[in-house]
Design a protein around this nucleic acid. Structure first.
Length: 553
RNA sequence: UGUCCUAUGGUGUAAUGGUAACACAGCAGAUUUUGAUUCUGCUUUUCUAGGUUCGAAUCCUAGUAGGACAACCA
């Protein structure tokens, strides 16, 4: 029997609706506005909406909320579709709020005829002033009592393009003293003589979110319209429209959006980072965008697992980014092929290894898998090891290489450090070591046990590659709490490029989309900037590092 | 001096009137040809005050704290 997982509050609502017979099936939707790329916050919503339909045997539409032509572009539509697919979900139908413009126009006419909407000539400043404040009631617009006939004529003229932008709006006629600001005669339609990415120049009036979203849900017979908490006050208006239009009663439910430490999910601010070139683009591997984390090497499996673990509730949250990293490592540990790469090389000459001799050693690609494949690695008299893996004066508990000490070269031999060679500046330029011929991995008969195991590459056969090391984008834990400019908190060390590091030759065959673990260095993947002549790898994530913590103490 | 939403370890999420649990993080230890992985153990929790009840994290009331709402954005 499968372990019973407790339900989140939306699943509870759905199960009750199914049990009570209110619904026989469910329909959800994911409604992005095509004015930017999707980020991890959207991933939470995608996993929720698509996951619910999958779990309860319903369907999920992908609907673009494209009611504002001045900020929306086809480029974003394509990006969003690619991201949803990459995450692993398939929508039932690809739809656009703009498909409903004719229907939405008729809905507006219906409200006018019912005396529930009017054309207002007030300026946006005047309308704002009429609204009042959360603690003070608003006042009626002087145009509030126009006749149905006049409103109808005016609204048709708005549609016909007789008025310039901003000169008139259609407003709902509700209650300027309502405690909910959104119910104080909200704007339903505005004039924008702008080219729309789908409808072109057919329209010069566009519906507002509140007049498009609920009705679109209703048209598609969405049973559970799931959105984030900031739309809670909109629910009253959402229901008002549906009730007065007497259309299919979709219902809105709100959950808390995802917030994460050391990053930021505001699409507006992410766009600013892109435009001001603080990052290389929407898909910069430091960005919390889906295209960014994909380029960085995060897997859809890891992100889905993350979304599953963070849960769904109604209280504000700040998720520790280490949970995301945990999910990424958990998946990558299983699927990443192991390779050896030396970042900061220190030459080692094995003095008792015959000059001119080379041999081929094998090492496992997937050590977690007992039947995993092997790869071949050249070994010779001269190799490079990580400079960090040698200490002239070792600190306590250091069990790597030091004068007179032994260490194992991963999948090769045990070596002992005999001599240090320094350059004229006193910097260590080379190590002279001797190896134990009987200690070869696989048939070690030396009987010697060493605790330290380090990675290495052959000095005669390594290939140069570039690696890009990423760290958190911001150096403040809770970016939601900063009150000055968010750009003041960008982490200047979020990207470190190592143009030439030494990799084992097998890495030359790396293909886009493959994941690797560079032994002891982290998880990496080929960057999209890589060419056949120049291999560039992104560090997806570091490995957990208990030694670094030990050293700090 | 309004309306609405929310309050459980450091961070998240469960417990649906009946022994407060799980994950991440942190700390210790075991294993390890990656100081990784894996395994074991430990630290830490119901906002406050009343009330209902045999029994309250859960229900009620009040308070406190945090968040949302005054775009012709979504």
């Amino acid at each position: 029997m499968a372990e019973e997982k407790s339900l989140n509050f939306i699943e509870e609502i759905i199960e009750n609706d199914l049990k009570s017979g209110k619904h026989t099936h469910i329909a959800t939707r994911f409604p992005p506005e095509p004015n930017g790329y999707l980020h991890l916050g959207h991933a939470k919503s995608i996993c929720l909406n698509f996951g619910l339909a999958l779990k309860y045997g319903g369907k999920t539409n992908l609907r673009f909320d494209d009611t504002n032509p001045v900020t929306e572009e086809t480029e974003y539509v394509e990006g969003i579709k690619g991201d949803v697919k990459w995450l692993g979900f398939q929508w039932a139908e690809e739809l656009y709020a703009s498909d409903y413009f004719p229907q939405l126009f008729e809905f507006a006419v219906t409200l006018i005829k019912k005396g529930l909407a009017y054309v207002d000539d007030s300026t946006s400043e005047e309308i704002a002033a009429q609204k009042g404040t959360p603690t003070q009631p608003g006042i009626n617009s002087p145009f509030r009592n126009r006749s149905v006939e006049e409103n109808l004529a005016l609204f048709n003229d708005m549609k016909a393009g007789k008025y310039p932008d901003g000169s008139k709006v259609l407003r709902a006629k509700i209650d300027m003293a309502h405690t909910n600001m959104l119910m104080r005669d909200p704007v339903l339609y505005r004039i924008k003589h702008a080219h729309h990415h789908r409808t072109g120049d057919t329209w010069c009036i566009y519906p507002m979110y509140d007049f498009a979203h609920g009705q679109s849900d209703s048209i598609e017979k969405i049973t559970h319209s799931i959105c984030t908490l900031e739309f809670v006050p909109h629910r009253e208006l959402y229901n008002w429209c549906i009730d007065n239009l007497e259309i299919y009663p979709s219902r809105q439910y709100e959950f808390a959006r995802l917030n994460m430490t050391y990053t930021m999910m505001s699409k507006r601010k992410l766009l600013q980072l892109v435009n001001e070139k603080h990052v290389s683009g929407w898909d910069d591997p430091r960005m919390p965008t889906l295209c960014g984390v994909r380029r960085r090497g995060y897997t859809p499996e890891a992100i889905r697992e993350f979304c599953d673990r963070i849960g769904v509730a109604k209280r504000d949250n700040l998720i520790d980014i280490s949970l995301l990293e945990f999910c990424v490592r958990e998946h990558l540990n299983k699927i990443a092929a192991r390779r050896m790469v030396v970042f900061d090389p220190l030459k080692v000459v094995i003095t008792n290894y015959p000059e001119g001799k080379t041999e081929t050693l094998t090492s496992e690609n997937y050590p977690e898998d007992p039947n995993g494949s092997l790869r071949e690695m050249p070994f010779g008299r001269e190799i490079y090891i990580e400079r960090e893996d040698f200490m002239e004066v070792p600190i306590k508990k250091y069990f790597r290489l030091a004068p007179g000490q032994m260490v194992r070269l991963k999948s090769a031999y045990i070596i002992k450090c005999d001599e240090i060679i320094k350059d004229t500046h006193g910097k260590i330029s080379e190590l002279r070591c001797s190896y134990i011929p009987e200690s070869r991995s696989g048939n070690d008969t030396s009987g010697i046990h060493v605790k330290g195991v380090i990675h290495w590459v052959s000095a005669a056969a390594f290939i140069p590659i570039e690696v890009r090391l990423y760290d958190r984008l911001f150096n403040v834990e809770d970016m939601g709490a900063v009150d000055d400019d968010f750009r003041n908190h960008l982490n200047p060390e979020s990207l470190k490029v190592l143009p030439t590091v030494y990799a084992e030759p097998e890495l030359a065959h790396a293909k886009p989309g493959e994941h690797f673990q560079f032994l002891r260095m982290g998880y990496f993947c080929l960057d999209t900037d890589a060419t056949t002549g120049k291999l560039i790898f992104n560090r997806t994530s570091t490995l957990r590092d208990m030694w670094a913590k030990e050293v700090k103490k």
